[in-house]
């Protein structure tokens, strides 16, 4: 199967620090590829490079047959790469529904839309309500997004990422920081996304919660100090000595 995303020799330096060091990485269509590693391993930097928020110093990123290495973030989003951030990024001073409308607008609207109403447009409103229903936020549509509980904000953000029926989802610690109840709900939601008929987006999942990672991932890449130290199916990763060493170092602190 041709990979949906393939990354070759990706490098990103911050001064003397090599945050991402010659990383090779692929995501197959419909695959959940988790990225784990101790703090400072370069996972978030790597995700920022995939999303187009940072430019690599070397290497190539190819998505669905297109070289996207030089494309800015908004252009990658339009190609079907959606993103959820480590620090929840919704529009806090908009109501929940308006956040969802914005996400639907991003997927259907081109041009400026100066002559077209936003919050009275049935196409946008219906799409937005469907999204909210999917992540279980329908009852809270008129609350300000900034007033939602942390877990609910994460769900809203995921809903917004799903609006454009993305082919690739980049998720930066969607579970970290949520309570046990919320974390179970999020794992279930991610399961439902990957099994949704007709969509099956590839998912890059950066996550600290290893239980969730092992439950969701088809493949796991382990990063340490910017480099990939292992990439395999979950069972073999569990048994890998190098991985244990990396995490033991982390735990010892």
């Amino acid at each position: 199967m041709t990979p949906l995303l393939s990354v070759r020799g990706l490098v990103r330096r911050y001064g003397a620090l090599v945050a991402v060091d010659h990383v090779e990485f692929t995501v197959l269509p419909g695959e959940v590829h988790a990225v784990i590693g101790p703090n400072g391993a370069g996972k978030s930097s790597f995700l920022a490079l995939l999303a187009g928020e940072a430019r690599p110093d070397a290497g190539e990123i190819e998505f669905a047959g297109t070289n996207i290495t030089r494309l800015p973030a908004f252009a990658r989003a339009r190609l079907g790469i959606a993103r959820a951030f480590q620090i929840t990024a919704v529009i806090p001073d908009f109501p929940v529904l308006q956040n969802a409308v914005l996400a639907v607008l991003a997927s259907v609207g081109r041009g400026f839309g100066m002559g077209r109403a936003a919050m009275h447009d049935p196409v946008l409103l219906d799409g937005a309500r469907r999204l909210l229903a999917r992540v279980g936020l329908a009852a809270q549509e008129s609350r300000l997004a900034g007033d939602l509980a942390h877990g609910a904000q994460r769900q809203l953000e995921l809903a917004m990422a799903l609006a454009g029926r993305p082919r690739l989802l980049l998720l930066d610690e969607p579970i970290a920081g949520t309570g046990p109840e919320e974390s179970r709900a999020m794992v279930a939601l991610l399961q439902s996304i990957r099994q949704a008929p007709g969509e099956r987006p590839g998912i890059v999942l950066v996550e600290h919660d290893l239980e969730a990672v092992f439950a969701l991932a088809d493949r796991i890449t382990v990063m340490a100090e910017g480099r990939v130290i292992a990439c395999d199916v979950p069972d073999r990763i569990r048994a890998d000595a190098a991985v244990r060493a990396a995490y033991l170092g982390d735990d010892a602190r």
């Binding site: 999303a51 928020e53 800015p72 973030a73 908004f74 252009a75 989003a77 339009r78 959606a82 993103r83 951030f85 990024a89 919704v90 529009i91 806090p92 001073d93 908009f94 308006q98 409308v101 914005l102 996400a103 607008l105 991003a106 997927s107 609207g109 400026f112 839309g113 100066m114 002559g115 077209r116 109403a117 936003a118 919050m119 447009d121 917004m160 990422a161 609006a163 454009g164």
Partner: peptide, 30 residues
Amino acid sequence: LVASRFGLVLQGARSNERRMRALGFDIRRH
């Protein structure tokens, strides 16, 4: 204008630029 789609994007970008770019809006044009 502020109630239009254009206005919604403009206000979204005021609040969270990064999210707007990740959604696919070229907010500099707006």
